[in-house]
Amino acid sequence: MIIARQMDVRANIKKYFDIAYHGEAVVVPRKQDRNVVIISEAEYRLLEQLKRASAYNDLLTDGIGKKGKISVSAKENVKARNKEKLSVIKNLKDDWNGNGAPAFSDELIAKISDLIDELMIQPEIFPTALGTIQLEYDNSGHDHMEIEIGLQDEAEIFIVNYNGKESFENITVSTAAINDRIKDFYG
């Protein structure tokens, strides 16, 4: 981090922009402590991502429901978070994505609810415009796994390893089969 006077920055703006672009923050003191910091767009995006991750974690422990947000009970409980999110997904109406996506059937919601109750590790769950629900896992080795579940008896597992290698597999949707894959994924 460097500190630069406002008049210096004005006179040499390209120089200070280049400094910020290459990863060093430029602090510009101003009157009444109304200081500013010049950083690169990459640094800004990272800070925003961290802020969102922090806000997301706050949502997990926020016991007060707010309009438009997914709230959980006071105890941090990932399973409860998934159950609440599933209830939100259940209430999505036809065309919920503005492009014709169908609402989710009670049968599929019940199927996912049963899985959430029994899975050894909770996934992150997301609706798709295909009428399916996607379960996602990310391990500490930066591998990524997606299990897309619909009304069919089979689901497709898509894994991307940390080195970019991809694999696909079809499995019968059952708690046992998915738990086996989770064990393999986390080692």
């Binding site: 925003e48 438009g68 609706p127 415009a129 996607q134």
Partner: peptide, 24 residues
């Protein structure tokens, strides 16, 4: 989407789920 449920596709690490890109 949906616009009124802001956290639907955000993952715990602040990134976006690939599910947001699925549209037949």
């Amino acid at each position: 989407y949906p616009p009124n449920i802001s956290s639907m596709y955000w993952k715990s690490d602040g990134s976006v789920s690939s599910a947001a890109f699925a549209d037949p």
